[in-house]
Design a protein around this nucleic acid. Structure first.
Lengths: 208, 208
DNA sequence: CAAGAATATGAGCGATCATTCGCGTTTGAA
DNA sequence: TTCAAACGCGAATGATCGCTCATATTCTTG
């Protein structure tokens, strides 16, 4: 049997009690990351905040990185649920309208928990979760690509893979920068403007 | 006198000998970041690789972060020199042609030292150099905005600040992702395609 | 209820690391 | 040539941190 990567859970929690422990640990990790930063997120501190002993922590997470990875997973799954749900409603719409909604979705996804999102974006390199990050990106590309394929006749781009890359990257960067680095400069009504601009950017690129 | 921030040099190097020491330290830091990663970049190791004692290190850099900050500064200045130089040649060109060159410039800037660029991009959060990063971004926005102002009549965007944000963000993200996360999937000839697409994306957004 | 399995505990080990300090060496100015 | 200032040295310090292990408590099953 292949050895589990060191970032995966050490063992499954089977009883309700231990599931609560695991939840408390992940939750505590997220809270500390947001409120105190990565450097303060020592295993001892995490256990303390979770109201659990370090020993218990190591029953379920082989390394500190595994804990952060769990937080990342949880957050990304939450985002993907949002995106998938809303994307389904958009599949039938024409490019203009669809893109507008997609930009809005991206913005919404970034606002699920902006501070956590920011910390995670910054600290992913530290955890070596590039692979997970890739998978997450891939999933986004594919979701968008599915839309493009369905509306091939409305767009002038031949290489759909390239088009997905360009569009998703652009939308992602716009919303990311807007929410994470410019949130003070961009009050709620400016968000509307941002959606307008993002839509124009992508539609202009796609439409025949 | 205001206390110097802890990331600034502790004292100036006045003799040639000490300037060499400082250079060796910054260079060693960069090398270690690229070849061994941030975690291996302990002050002791940096001094060792620089062929210098830890004591000397602390004569010029008050903290480990100050060293990394110095590396970041050096790299960003190098990029800004590249961008400023090439941008001057583009100021008179019409939008289509200018944007194409700008995308090419961004790509070139990212390829000055991609591996260092990547490590720095990843580790900036760890050094708390957000401020420097902001200044760097601002400078890029302003450079691009200067171009837009000069060609106001060729573009359909009213808010130039917003337009700079959108364009620079999009170009940055495209080249960044392409070079750092897709370099294997994007051989040299695909870079041409990337420039085409980036140009189309931005021109479509800007042009009347 | 008995007993083994699952879960929880937390003191403490070993390793790493940033930083200091007392002292030796080199340089440049007088 | 002299000497003070600049520069360089590296063993040692103190603090932090990830992680283990011997032990205790709680749950489940028969």
């Amino acid at each position: 049997m292949a050895r589990r990567a060191a970032v995966n859970p050490r063992k499954e929690a089977s009883q309700a009690r231990s599931r609560a422990t695991v939840d408390a640990l992940v939750e505590a990790t997220a809270r500390i990351l947001v409120r105190e930063g990565f450097d303060k997120a020592s295993t001892n501190r995490i256990a303390e905040v979770a109201g659990v002993s370090v020993g218990s922590l190591y029953q379920y997470f082989p390394t500190k990185e595994a804990l952060v990875a769990a937080v990342i997973d949880r957050h990304q799954q939450q985002i993907l649920r949002t995106v998938r749900g809303e994307l389904a409603e958009v599949m039938a719409e024409p490019v203009e309208k669809a893109v507008r909604k997609l930009v809005a979705i991206a913005l919404k996804a970034h606002r699920v928990d902006p501070r956590l999102h920011r910390v995670l974006a910054e600290q992913i390199p530290r955890v070596g979760r590039f692979e997970k990050q890739e998978t997450f990106s891939r999933e986004n590309y594919d979701l968008f690509r599915a839309y493009l394929e369905k509306h091939r006749d409305e767009i002038r781009v031949a290489d759909l893979e390239m088009a997905s890359f360009v569009c998703v990257t652009a939308i992602e960067a716009l919303t990311h920068n807007a929410v994470l680095h410019r949130s003070k400069a961009l009050p709620d009504d400016a968000m509307e403007t941002l959606i307008d601009e993002g839509t124009r950017l992508v539609t202009g690129y796609l439409k025949r």
